[in-house]
Design a protein around this nucleic acid. Structure first.
Lengths: 147, 147
DNA sequence: GTGTCGGTGGGAAAAAGTGGGGCTAAGTGG
DNA sequence: CCACTTAGCCCCACTTTTTCCCACCGACAC
């Protein structure tokens, strides 16, 4: 389980330290890819397997499906940690997420998200009012799903 | 598993370096052929065997499928790596994929695709909005798998 | 105060990618 | 059958990128 927000520096080589609390839960086979709302997402191997399995391009794969898989896999990369526990964010990933010299590393239960520092501030620094409204709307949706 | 996008040069002799991360996973018997949407596809031996075994011309083969098989097998070629880890793209393959001095080499889970640089940009350089949709569809599929 | 742990930065070594020359083999035409 | 041309392959050299290693700094605990 990944919890909390950590602000870490991204150096000139694109290296980003993953918080030690997260790293101990990330065995080899961890994958990073482009995610929703312009963040990057880090999938532990088990989570990634859920995404990956059952997806395979063949000559009978439908056009829509081909595009989906190309975008999904073409934008992903396996995480490799150096001896200091850092990963290298590719130039493409950095520009997608608008990440410069700093990033927010956020634990979101089953996976980790990496955000542009500023973009995360707008989300993470929500006021109690905003938070309440969002919670209410989600609760409303869940009720209608149950029906 | 093949992941990520790499932009590499294609020199005057039609040589293209395959990213080292991909090359390690490509034993002898790897095959390159024409793929959908004007890309080239590189099949590792196991994937190629899967294709080969499933397709076979018989008296009951539909006309359309015969055509598909002729194209797929007729334009296929075994990959040969030089000492620098490059393959030579045939003139036919280059013109099919519209590849000039640069190409994008993309890992798509079970196989590798080679694209005209520009054509790939239209797929891979999608906006966060498009990736958000992709993610929604992946999540949707997971839910249906769980049922 | 001293030791450990987590994060940051930079230099050096190694690996990966790029380009070109020249030899060999294969196809083409007389 | 031989000469010629072309395309393919191998090898070497260079440049850039990546990775590895070491050193430092600050915070916290003992």
């Amino acid at each position: 389980m990944f919890l909390g927000t950590y602000r870490h520096a991204v150096d000139a080589k694109g290296r980003l330290a993953i918080p030690a609390r997260f790293r101990e839960q990330l065995p080899a086979g961890t994958v990073i890819s482009k995610g929703a709302e312009g963040c990057l997402q880090v999938y532990p191997p088990k989570e990634w397997a859920r995404v990956k399995d059952r997806m395979r391009i063949t000559s009978t794969t439908a056009a829509e499906e081909r595009k989906l898989q190309r975008m999904l896999f073409g934008s992903a990369r396996e995480c490799e940690f150096d001896a200091q526990g850092r990963i290298v964010l590719s130039a493409d990933h950095r520009s997608y997420a608008g990440i410069g010299a700093a990033a927010a590393v956020v634990g979101v239960n089953n996976l980790i998200e990496i955000w542009n520092d500023e973009a995360w501030r707008r989300i993470g620094d929500a006021t109690p009012d905003e938070y309440t409204r969002i919670q209410d709307r989600v609760a409303e949706r869940e009720r209608s799903n149950d029906r």
